[in-house]
Design a binder for these strands. Structure first.
Length: 480
RNA sequence: GGGGCCGUAGUCUAGCUUGGUUAUGAUGCUAGCCUGGGGUGCUAGAGGUCGCCGGUUCAAGUCCGGCCGGCCCCA
């Protein structure tokens, strides 16, 4: 029948188009009237909600609180830290008028909230007793994207959380930076089933205004890198211009030590790219809005009653285990249509239940990840399904780990580097530590340093570009 | 940053080269029936500022200009 309902291109033939079709056809998001802006539809938003609640629990368990910041930031405030301002200004949207009246100190639509948050913090923090202050904000940020927009990956407004913490000592702040990065890594690996490499950004790639930036990076099936989240050590770079200071135990006025960190709905983009296939989305059970869908099949009113009765019973049993279960009772479409529909939407597990199954005392289970069908006896419903969901979660993570391994290569020769980079990869190569060599690589291959892994080795090697002794190895890639 | 393609009903689209009465088909939607284990079949019906603004013309979906929006490829 009509092929336009489903995904019409293959993942390995036209990756970009494939991605766009999944976003639109699985009803994750749609385009807003303004270029670069998207509207999240309920199905897409519920993925964000489950990510959000998982992370939010972890943040609260570690003493973070949520707050809310306005979206408008006066230019005078945003420009207080000059590097920070210079870094963001090319992509800031400005509000210049209120009604017909021009605003003297024009207002930025927040590209990020350091300036605003810290101007408030400076009022709230007086004493060492006020610290640490650990506030997180679930909001959106706006950064003008002129070209190359892509739903979830590059949009002019995106959903994220930004955490901003203040500490009495450098050590405590640096520990916070690491503990957040660990929390992110855990969330992404355990919930989204996407493995990441953690480490530091080079000076060239770090957050503007930070002392250093830690990051987690992953590689997509097309060989491009995606930054999955960052956690920044700000040192006193912001506390000085924004006057965030406190009286310490010795009654000495001291500038505070700060961190900021964030993850965005980019993670949803990563999820689509990493796990999706030619039939559509494939969702890891832990973040799937619907984990199990039941498709009832019947021929007669009597069958209908019996099948729906049993289906409800199964649903109730699963809901007791906090599973998110949907029973597709639509009468206007056939079972076959429903199968395709839920496959496109990536529901991890499907139960098919019809008169034949009732007679046998079994249901048919179909896994979304490998499309294999198995029978499950009614008496084993709960255990069997919980186990299978775990298997799917694990299986997806294993596949993604294999992809990462396969696409990561150690390269020490620059010619090989250039040819491998053409194919798209994470290239682990020795580097002298100089920005100049990064620039040369960027110029000739389009790649940059994605991450200097925490476990990077430096084995008496020479820089991939300049041949001077290397200071570390770093992971280079082209990125989204 | 450079290049190419595109915009007609919810969706996919014909028509545009060569301007001419009531804009084509499918799908989806609504109603009724039939069906149902992998994108069903029949009948009837509703659904359109032809992306927007302007120009040329007796006449513009069609030609011209600008703008808005989308996709892809390369850096």
């Amino acid at each position: 029948m009509s092929k336009e309902i489903g995904i019409t291109v293959k993942k390995n033939e036209n990756f970009s188009e494939w991605y766009t079709q999944i976003v639109l056809k699985a009803h994750l998001a749609d385009y807003a009237p303004v270029k670069g802006l998207i509207v999240l539809r309920p199905y897409g938003y519920s993925i964000w909600e489950s990510l959000k609640s998982s992370l939010d629990l972890k943040l609260k368990a570690t003493g973070h609180e949520n707050g809310f910041l306005p979206v408008l930031i006066p230019q005078s405030l945003l420009s207080k830290e000059s590097d920070h301002f210079a870094g963001f200004t090319p992509e800031v949207f400005w509000v210049t008028h209120s009604g017909d009246t021009e605003i003297g100190d024009r207002l930025a639509l927040r590209p990020t909230s350091e300036a605003l948050a810290y101007s408030m913090y400076s009022k709230w923090i007086k004493s060492w007793r006020d610290l640490p202050m650990k506030i997180n904000f679930w909001n959106t940020a706006l950064r003008a994207e002129i070209k190359a927009t892509k739903p979830f990956l590059r949009t002019s407004e995106f959903l994220w959380q930004e955490g901003h913490t203040v500490h009495t000592t450098k050590e405590e702040a640096e520990a916070e930076v690491m503990s957040i990065l660990d929390m992110y890594k855990k969330t992404v690996e355990e919930e989204l089933a996407i493995p990441v490499i953690t480490g530091k950004k080079s000076d060239k790639e770090k957050f503007v205004g930070a002392v250093y930036t830690t990051t987690m990076e992953s590689i997509m099936p097309d060989g491009k890198a995606l930054q999955m989240g960052t956690s920044h050590f700000l040192g006193q770079n912001f506390s000085k211009p924004f006057d965030v200071k406190f009286l310490d135990r010795q009654n000495v006025e001291t500038f505070a030590w700060q961190t900021s960190w964030g993850v965005s709905w980019r993670l949803i983009g990563a999820l689509i790219m990493i796990h999706g296939d030619d039939k559509g989305l494939v969702l890891p059970p832990r973040v799937a809005p619907i984990q199990v869908v039941i498709v009832p099949i019947y021929y007669s009113p009597e069958d209908r009653e019996a099948v729906l009765g049993k289906a409800s019973e199964i649903k109730d049993a699963l809901v007791k285990h906090n599973l998110r279960v949907h029973m597709d009772v639509r009468d206007e479409v056939t079972p076959g249509y429903k199968f395709h529909d839920w496959e496109m939407k990536g529901v991890p597990l499907r139960i098919e239940l019809g008169p034949k199954d009732l007679a046998k005392g079994k249901m048919v289970l179909v896994r979304r990840d490998n499309l294999k069908k198995t029978d499950l006896e009614f008496e084993n419903t709960e255990k069997g399904i919980l186990n299978m969901l775990d298997e799917i979660q694990q299986g997806l993570f294993e596949n993604a780990k294999n992809l990462l391994k396969e696409k990561t290569k150690n390269v020490t020769d620059y010619e090989e580097f250039k040819s491998e980079m053409e194919k798209g990869a994470f290239l682990n190569s020795p580097w002298c530590g100089e920005t100049k060599c990064e620039e040369i690589i960027k110029e000739s291959t389009g790649a940059d340093i994605r991450v200097i892994p925490f476990d990077a080795k430096n084995e008496n090697s020479t820089c991939i570009v300049c041949k001077k002794p290397s200071k570390t190895s770093a992971i280079f890639a082209r990125s989204y």
